[in-house]
Computed example of a mutant assay.
Amino acid sequence: MNKKAVCIISGGMDSALSAKMAQKEGYEIIALHFNYGQRTQTKELECFRKIAKDIGAKKSYEVDLGFFEQIGASALTDMSIDIPTGGVEEGVPVTYVPFRNGIFLSIAAAVAEKHAAEALFIGVVEEDSSGYPDCRESYIEQMQKAINMGTKEETDLEIKMPLVALKKSEIVQRSLDLGVPLKDTWSCYQDEVKACGVCDSCRLRLRGFEKAGVKDPIAYQ
């Protein structure tokens, strides 16, 4: 029987690489995407579908989580809060969505249990991330313990974070090495046609490509 992995895929570069690594490790892929009212929801979904096809996902889930808009408190889901474009903020950025990864991992665990998957891949990056508390390795490790305590005895899920210690330039390079379709990934927080180039996520991405010495294949304003 094939070993199975649930891959959380946002449509961004990090999760695309994480899923490609799962494929290279020989896992049968169950692709999982969340629509949570984020500004670039349509574009991210389009990218997810292309990535899932590229990695030959055996099953895909597109889960709608409308309650994130009700909760608000993030510039990604509350249109009255501006996306910062001035560079690094102090503390946790306003683009942080409250407990997003915790909620994503909980749903992913349910999907993994259904399919008897043994691994769950998430593309969190600690060192080069935007200061989100739910991207820390120590937090994900605790979630793994909690998930295995709260599921059936035969469920023994490992949450894999293959990018957690990488820099963005290393992610770009590894993506190129493994043939990740970077043209089909999206990082911009606020625009869906052409990336803005000035939000935190665009800055991180552009800096990564620059340090890797290659040109980003997506269009910028």
Rank of each mutant, 00 (worst) to 15 (best):
M1N: 11
K4V: 10
G11P: 03
G11R: 10
D14R: 12
A16D: 06
K20N: 08
A22E: 04
G26W: 11
T40V: 06
T42A: 15
K43T: 02
E46K: 09
K50M: 09
K53P: 04
Y61P: 03
Y61S: 05
L65C: 13
Q70L: 15
L76G: 04
M79S: 15
S80V: 06
I83N: 04
T85D: 08
F99D: 07
N101A: 03
N101R: 02
G102T: 02
I103K: 04
S106T: 09
A109W: 02
A112C: 06
A112R: 05
K114E: 12
L120E: 01
I122A: 11
S130A: 14
S130W: 04
Y132W: 09
Y132M: 06
D134P: 04
S138R: 13
I140P: 01
K145V: 12
A146W: 13
A146V: 10
I147H: 04
A165H: 15
K167C: 10
E170T: 07
I171F: 00
V172D: 01
Q173N: 08
L176D: 01
G179L: 02
P181W: 05
D184G: 01
W186G: 01
W186M: 02
C188T: 00
E192F: 04
V193K: 12
A195C: 06
C199P: 01
S201W: 05
R203Q: 15
R205F: 03
G208C: 02
V214T: 02
V214W: 07
P217C: 06
I218F: 06
A219P: 05
